[in-house]
């Protein structure tokens, strides 16, 4: 599904927020000129900048339900107010201001949600993501164990096993190959690798297989 303009800007905001809240300044290794404020601006640019710089305060406040909600609203309102002032002063066009606000709202919501305590009943991110083939090997091992213990349907187990093997193979692909598969998957049913016309060397397949067997102690 193509990304909308709003989603794109929101994603930009989230990426910036992630950098800012880690306090990762772009000045450690490469000399950079001092941050320049566009000419003719004054406090309103500072107000705008402060909203971004203070996202770590939002992260802190978000750990408390009431304070977090209030902080989220305060930050987004403050950012909007600073933009409105800049628009009124003719320093930013209304269209650009709206885009900036979308990016900031995406960033602020991301920071808030990532830090807010979970409510009852509803599951909340972050969800599990396997980090390495070792994780996948552990899944495969448990699958075999539980298949025996729970007398699982062999066909279902085979499909689950195939999915794990596919994930291991996936991790062996290049970024370009992964992109091609994702595009194809959006078009239709997930196709077999053989039908994608990818050049996956036999050695890569063999390496994936060896890795599975190795980590399952089958070698």
């Amino acid at each position: 599904m193509p990304m909308t303009r709003r989603e794109f800007l929101s994603a930009i905001g989230v990426a910036l927020a992630s950098l800012l809240t880690s306090r990762c300044l772009p000045s450690c290794y490469t000399p950079v000129p001092p941050a320049m404020t566009p000419t003719g601006q004054g406090d309103d640019w500072d107000r705008l900048r402060r909203c971004w710089w203070d996202l770590d305060l939002l992260a802190r406040d978000a750990r408390d339900l009431e304070k977090g909600q209030q902080a989220l609203q305060k930050f987004t309102a403050e950012h909007r107010a600073a933009l409105d002032a800049l628009v009124a002063a003719g320093q930013v066009s209304p269209e650009v201001a709206d885009d900036l606000q979308v990016a900031f709202e995406g960033a602020a919501y991301h920071v808030w949600r990532a830090n807010a305590p979970i409510t009852c009943y509803i599951i909340a991110p972050p969800l599990y993501e396997f980090q390495s083939n070792v994780d996948l090997a552990q899944q495969a091992e448990l699958l075999e164990e539980m298949a025996k213990k729970g007398a699982l349907d062999p066909d279902t187990v085979a499909r689950a096993r195939a999915a794990i093997e596919r994930d291991i193979a996936w991790r062996s692909l290049t970024a370009e190959e992964q992109e091609a598969i994702l595009e194809a998957a959006q078009q239709a049913k997930y196709p077999p690798l053989e039908e994608l016309g990818l050049e996956i060397p036999a050695s890569a397949r063999e390496a994936a297989r060896i890795l599975v067997e190795l980590l399952l102690k089958q070698r």
């Binding site: 599951i123 969800l127 599990y128 993501e129 552990q138 899944q139 495969a140 448990l142 699958l143 164990e145 539980m146 213990k149 729970g150 689950a160 999915a163 794990i164």
Partner: peptide
């Protein structure tokens, strides 16, 4: 054991 089964089948949470 149910959690193990869930993990083996790729549950994310």
């Amino acid at each position: 054991d149910t959690l193990k089964l869930a993990f083996a089948f790729g549950a994310r949470g």
